[in-house]
Design a protein around this nucleic acid. Structure first.
Length: 486
DNA sequence: ATAGATGATTGATC
DNA sequence: GATCAATCATCTAT
């Protein structure tokens, strides 16, 4: 919508109004006026130099004046001024003026439109209300954010999706700015045009009868015209907001796969807590934070706590439904956590060596050639040894809940690798090394195998407190799983 | 184009 | 309120 359209429309309106008057004037100048002096019994002043019987001469004179009035718009400004002056000084002008007055009175033009008081348009009110509610109209800052919050709330999701949130707000602000700029333009144009028309009418009121009330009426017409254009502006603004909003909501509805890193983090947690894959609220927050960091580097979106909950909900169900399908994945993450544990072990070894030079044999014995952990190659060999026995067909006995939890060494309660029973010996060996390293010989007891911490006979996971206390001896019941933190 | 994977939603249940 | 289970809608690999 442009200013030119607006002006064109206003001009149309004005032109229409002028047309009306022109038609009337033409009819005055033609037939009706000729008979008017007779019909109305009005005594026109006798034309100068003519006697009162010369009707044709009078008609001619008045016709001339009218013609000049009608053609005044076709002339240049100077010409028009000169003509106007000429008209005002014309000898027949007072006569014409009074005739026009009387005709006007008769035709009731002056009161026409007085009843055109426009009632408050319900549609306009709706638009105004909506713009106000959306924060496009009304107070500056609060409106926008309130609307965004309302939109977020309306979507049913948590209001913690800050990316789309701010995106939405930015777009809304843009719309708001455009709206206000346009509105201001229209108002300015309206005022200019009104002033112009008023001046014009005041000017014309010397030639033809125009009462202040009529000027007011004309102003009203112009304002109505402009406000109808404003309504179009409001309407299109509302549409833009609706589109933005629907896009915003759709975007939230739309499913986007998490990044690989985020999925890995979640999977790591899931498989390392397979006996009780119910992260606490804090753990969920930790995971969300962790995932967000990795995801934001990739995709550029965040993962919320509720998304973490969704993920675990879906994972639990799908794992339970088809344990066999997830065995490979379980192996993978068990290996992964084992690698982490080995890394931690190596680090601890180095630490212990560095920190206790006087007692080299008090902790982990690096002499054991089989468990040299200080080179990447050795670690890989160790781990491949660990899992070659299973050769990808890692069996989870019964419901697949035979797991081993390893304790890390560096003081963090690392919730360790959970591997199958058929790699028990290797894991036991590793565990031995690790526990020796950290001086945690007693931490897990003599035998690594314990069961079951996973699915029970009913297909549900066992009580959270029982299993977590077993899995994480260093953690008190109900404590936050610190392995999600750094 | 399709099947399978996956994140989100919904209603029921505890 | 958290979770389960079913389902929807979309993404992704083929």
């Amino acid at each position: 919508m442009s200013f030119s359209i607006c002006v064109a429309q206003c001009t149309d309106s004005l032109a229409a109004t002028m047309d009306d008057q022109a038609r009337i004037m033409q009819s005055i100048g033609g037939v009706s006026l000729a008979g008017h002096s007779v019909q109305g019994g009005m005594a026109l002043p006798p034309p100068h130099g003519h006697d009162g019987t010369d009707g044709d001469g009078r008609k001619q004179d008045i016709g001339d004046i009218l013609h000049q009035i009608m053609t005044i718009t076709d002339q240049s400004l100077d010409e028009a001024q000169a003509k106007k002056h000429g008209l005002n000084c014309h000898r027949m002008k007072p006569a014409l003026f009074s005739v026009l007055c009387e005709i006007k009175e008769k035709t009731g033009l002056s009161i026409r439109g007085a009843q055109e008081e426009d009632p408050p348009d319900p549609q306009l009110m709706r638009l105004d209300n909506m713009l106000l509610a959306e924060g496009v109209a009304g107070p500056e800052k609060g409106g926008g954010s309130a609307a965004a919050a309302a939109a977020a709330a309306a979507s049913g999701g948590a209001a913690d999706n800050s990316i789309e949130h701010s995106d939405y707000r930015a777009k809304l602000t843009q719309i708001r700015q455009i709206y206000h700029t346009e509105l201001e333009k229209y108002e300015q144009a309206c005022n200019e045009f009104t002033t112009h028309v008023m001046n014009l009418l005041r000017e014309q009121s010397r030639t033809r009868p125009i009462s202040p009330k009529e000027i007011e009426r004309m102003v009203g017409i112009i304002h109505r015209k402009f406000s109808s254009i404003q309504m179009q502006l409001k309407q299109s603004t509302c549409e833009a907001v609706m589109i933005l909003r629907s896009r915003f909501l759709d975007a939230r509805r739309k499913r986007r796969n998490f990044s690989k890193q985020a999925t890995e983090i979640l999977n790591e947690y899931f498989y390392s807590h397979l006996s009780n894959p119910y992260p606490s609220e804090e753990a969920k927050e930790e995971l969300a934070k962790k995932c967000s960091i990795t995801v934001s580097q990739g995709v550029g979106s965040t993962i919320t706590v509720s998304q973490v909950s969704n993920w675990f909900g879906n994972k639990r169900i799908r794992y339970k439904k088809n344990i066999g399908k997830f065995q490979e994945e379980a192996n993978l993450y068990a290996a992964k956590t084992a690698v982490n544990a080995a890394h931690a072990a190596a680090a601890a070894v180095q630490n212990s060596q560095a920190n206790s030079p006087t007692t080299p044999n008090s902790g982990f014995q690096m002499k054991d050639e089989e468990f040299q952990l200080d080179s990447a190659e050795s670690k890989n060999t160790l781990l491949s040894n660990m899992f070659t026995g299973s050769s990808g067909s890692f069996n989870l006995p019964n419901s697949g809940d035979m797991f081993l939890s390893m304790q890390s060494l560096n003081g963090d309660s690392y919730q360790g690798a959970q591997v199958g029973a058929n790699v028990q010996s290797q894991v036991d060996t590793l565990r031995h090394v690790i526990s020796q390293t950290a001086g945690y010989n007693d931490a897990l007891g003599g035998n690594a195998m314990y069961s079951p911490h996973g699915l029970n006979a009913n297909g549900g996971w066992q009580d959270a407190t029982t299993s977590s206390s077993v899995i994480s001896p260093t953690e008190g019941p109900g404590s936050v799983h610190s392995d999600t933190s750094n």
